[in-house]
Design a protein around this nucleic acid. Structure first.
Length: 419
RNA sequence: GGAGAGAUGGCCGAGUGGUCGAAGGCGCUUGAUUCGAAAUCAAGUAUACCGGUAACGGUAUCGAGGGUUCGAAUCCCUCUCUCUCCGCCA
């Protein structure tokens, strides 16, 4: 959520951001509604003030005087009620608009229409010779992945992992949790089913309803999370935090409807309805420098982690048109996926400033003792099974076996090879 | 799923129609006392928004929403959540 004052003070910046992000927001209709809202509210408050004044006087008066006043006050009361209902209506409209107002991208963010205009800023690792088998073939041959049966049981975009495939999947997740624990992050096992408020607070709703599974028939207002960011950020909803920063490692399954993606990335484990993710979440002070520091920390954690798995990757800075509504600064990390003959997105590192914290009503006392909204950030540490694509494909051997990266071996009982 | 009890400030807890943003206590802050501390005493101690340079004034907020009333923390309705008992259950 955007501070309405900030829109009043700097409408042009919001016009630009709205265009850049193709947000469903109109600065000028907001401003006009906002001014209606303000004047109506003032009218309401002054009428209410005179009513309160009389109410306080009432018990000191005689019966006759009271009766006389009551008749007068009846009219005022009716008037106030009418204004109040109008005010409520306009307030709701204003709130709905405000929820769709975009965060303004930092000056570092390149201008661009979509992901094709993201800019590569870093490249790491040598791309190995591709031996020709993709993860689906490898998975089938070694009994690691069974997509056909996944579809039989759960419909399209479903899968089974089995045997060493399932073990590798758990190993990489377990390793990720240990890794973040070692860097001072608090491991969180959060709710997978959340309320509308949590979805709204993290800015998935309104707007992202199509992408979320809803349990609506028997449990209205309950949704499956698409990332533990939703639960973990909402952990401090409506709270005043007395200790910052907070570093969390959220671990959860992620459920995504992937509506509108039919025919896109149909092959293998790239785009699926259910996966697991270890997510980094930071809540920190309301300060651009501090946010930037944490953005780099989160990005570095992810880079260090992939490097320890020895997966070639590149980092791109995400352009204006490919950013989410609330994000002001964002990098993606893409790992090399031989079967796609390209880098594929595996990580997404976002800085929100106070966009989510305002929606979540998550505050802290700053040095002057004043309450301020926190800043929030998040980044993937690892998402699996998508990460199995580069993991299997880049590590395949000529004899059809797969080398397990050194860092994962302890989490596979010391096993070095999948065969 | 059935039956009952409850939700008040940072915390505990009083408050069944008016002068209640809310007693009292705890906690916290400041001052007095003390060599210092404890104890004691005194004062202060919610948030948001609007107006004002400020002092200050106004409005809202007692789980959420609606209703009754000139006036609601207090009465009525709906919902959410918590607790206890019963049933079911990994």
């Amino acid at each position: 959520m955007i501070d309405p004052n900030s829109i009043r003070e700097n409408p042009e910046a919001y016009r630009t951001a709205t265009k850049q992000k193709r947000a469903n927001f109109d600065v000028d209709s907001f401003l006009s509604l906002d001014s209606d809202y303000k004047s109506l509210k003032q009218e309401f408050e002054s009428k209410k003030a005179s009513q309160n004044k009389v109410s306080k006087l009432m018990p000191t008066l005689s019966k006759e005087e009271q009766a006389k006043l009551k008749d007068e006050m009846k009219a005022l009361s009716a008037e106030i009620k009418e204004i109040e209902s109008k005010l409520k209506e306009i307030e709701a409209q204003r709130e709905a608009m405000l929820l769709r107002a975009p965060g303004i991208p930092l000056k570092e963010v390149p201008e661009g229409k979509d992901d094709s205009e993201n800019k590569e800023v870093e490249k790491w690792g040598d791309i190995p010779e591709y031996l020709g088998k993709d993860h689906v073939e490898l998975g089938l041959a070694l009994g690691l992945i069974d997509i056909e049966r996944g579809v039989k049981v759960g419909g399209s975009k479903n899968y089974f992992l089995k045997g060493d495939g399932a073990r590798l999947h758990h190993a990489v997740l377990q390793y990720a949790l240990s890794f973040l624990y070692g860097r001072g992050y608090t491991v969180m096992e959060p709710p997978h089913i959340v309320s509308y408020d949590a979805m709204k607070g993290t800015s998935y709703f309104p707007g992202g309803e199509e992408q979320a599974y809803s349990l609506d028939s028997r449990d209205p207002d309950k949704y499956l999370i698409g990332t533990s960011e939703v639960s973990v950020c909402s952990y401090h909803m409506n709270e005043i935090l007395d200790e910052l920063p907070k570093r969390y490692a959220g671990y959860s399954p992620c459920y995504r409807r992937e509506a509108g993606t039919y025919g896109k990335d149909t092959h293998g484990l790239y785009r699926i309805h259910q996966f697991y993710k270890v997510e980094q979440v930071v809540v920190c002070e309301n300060d651009p420098d501090i946010s930037m520091r944490f953005h780099n920390e989160l990005l570095n954690n992810a880079k260090d982690f992939i490097q320890s798995l020895n997966l070639p990757y590149r980092v791109v800075i995400v352009c204006t048109g490919d950013m989410g509504l609330g994000q002001v600064y964002k990098h993606d990390i893409e790992c090399w996926m031989p079967s796609r003959n390209s880098y594929g997105e595996t990580h997404s590192c976002s800085t929100f400033y106070d966009f989510q914290a305002r929606r979540l009503n998550m505050r802290y006392k700053n040095k002057e003792g004043k309450l301020e909204f926190c800043h929030t950030l998040n980044n993937t540490l690892i998402a699996s099974p998508r990460i199995l694509i580069p993991l299997l494909e880049n590590n395949q051997n000529k004899d059809g076996t797969i080398a397990i990266p050194k860092a994962l071996q302890p989490f596979m009982g010391g096993q070095e090879v999948i065969k």
